[in-house]
Design a protein around this nucleic acid. Structure first.
Lengths: 130, 130
DNA sequence: TTTATTGTACTAATACTTTAATACAACAAT
DNA sequence: ATTGTTGTATTAAAGTATTAGTACAATAAA
C-alpha cells in the first residue's frame, strides 16, 4: 500500500512551554517538512495512535491535522489516514508572491524593529543550511 | 525639549480584524520603525492621548507599550513618556545571531511548508524595497 | 455484508486572553 | 509644595481558546 507509516517522526509535547498541544504538533510537522524528514505522500500517524502516544485526546491531534489540511499541507481521508500533500503547484505566480509576501511581512517587520536590515537578513539566510 | 511629539503616526484600529487592539498598536509601531517613520528618540503618543484618540482604555495602550518595552523597542518613564529606544548595540555577535535565528526559524519553517525554498525567499527579499 | 480502521461532530469544563473601570504612583514644571 | 503630566496596579467582566468525553460516520479490508 505504498507510503511508509511513520517511525520517521518522533513527536513530543512540552506541557510547560505554554504552546498549546495542537500547535506543538503543527510546528513539529512543519519542521519535519522543512528539512525533508517528511515528504509528499508520507503518512502521518493516525489521529488515534498519536493521541495514545502523546496521551492526549484524539480531537487535539485532529485539530492539528485539520489546520494543516486547511493550509493545504496535508490531506486527509476518513478510513485511510492523513498524508503529506504534494507541494502546491502554484500555477499563478501572482498568487505565489501574494502568499510569500503575507508570510514575509510580519517577519521583516519584527526583524527590522530589532534593528536588523534586509541586507543582514539576506546574508543570514544564505548561511541557513550550514 | 528635544524630540517631536507625534503627528508622525496615524494609528487606527480595525475592530473586525480579529486582531486584538494592543497587537494592532504594536504592529503599527513595528511597521513605522521598519520604514523609518519612527526613529531613535521619537516620542510615542501618551498612553492617555492615544487611548482617547482610539477610544479605548488607557491600559490597552499601556499594554502595547509594555510589550515593546520588554523587547527593548521602546523605553518608558513615568511622568515623561514613551520613546523609541536606541537600536540595541548588539555588542555580542553571537547574541545577535541568536536573536535573528530565533526570529527566522519559524518564518523559514512556515515558508518551507508552503513549498518555498530558501533561494526563492532570498530572491523575494532582494526585491522587498520596491 | 461485516468488521476494523480511519477521521469527525457535538458538548462541556477549564483556562487563558483581552478589555475596561477605577484608583494609584512617579516624575516634571512651576 | 503644588499642580499637571506621565505611566501603573488592581480588579472584574466578557469573550475566546484549548482540551477532553463521548458518540458518530466514512472508508477499506476481509
Amino acid at each position: 500500500m505504498g507510503a511508509d507509516l511513520v517511525p520517521k517522526l518522533q513527536f513530543s509535547l512540552d506541557p510547560k512551554s505554554g504552546v498549546p498541544y495542537y500547535k506543538q504538533i503543527i510546528l513539529q510537522i512543519e519542521m519535519a517538512i522543512a528539512d525533508n524528514r517528511l515528504t509528499q505522500g508520507d503518512q502521518l500517524p493516525t489521529v488515534r495512535s498519536l493521541a495514545v502516544d502523546l496521551q492526549i485526546n484524539p480531537n487535539t491531534v485532529a485539530r492539528a491535522y485539520n489546520e494543516l489540511e486547511i493550509r493545504g499541507i496535508v490531506n486527509t481521508q476518513q478510513g485511510t489516514g492523513t498524508f503529506i500533500s504534494d507541494k502546491p503547484v502554484m500555477i499563478d505566480d501572482v498568487e505565489k508572491e501574494r502568499i510569500l509576501a503575507e508570510i514575509t511581512r510580519p517577519f521583516i517587520s519584527k526583524a527590522s524593529s530589532y534593528g536588523f536590515t534586509i541586507g543582514e537578513i539576506i546574508d543570514f539566510l544564505k548561511e541557513w543550511g550550514d
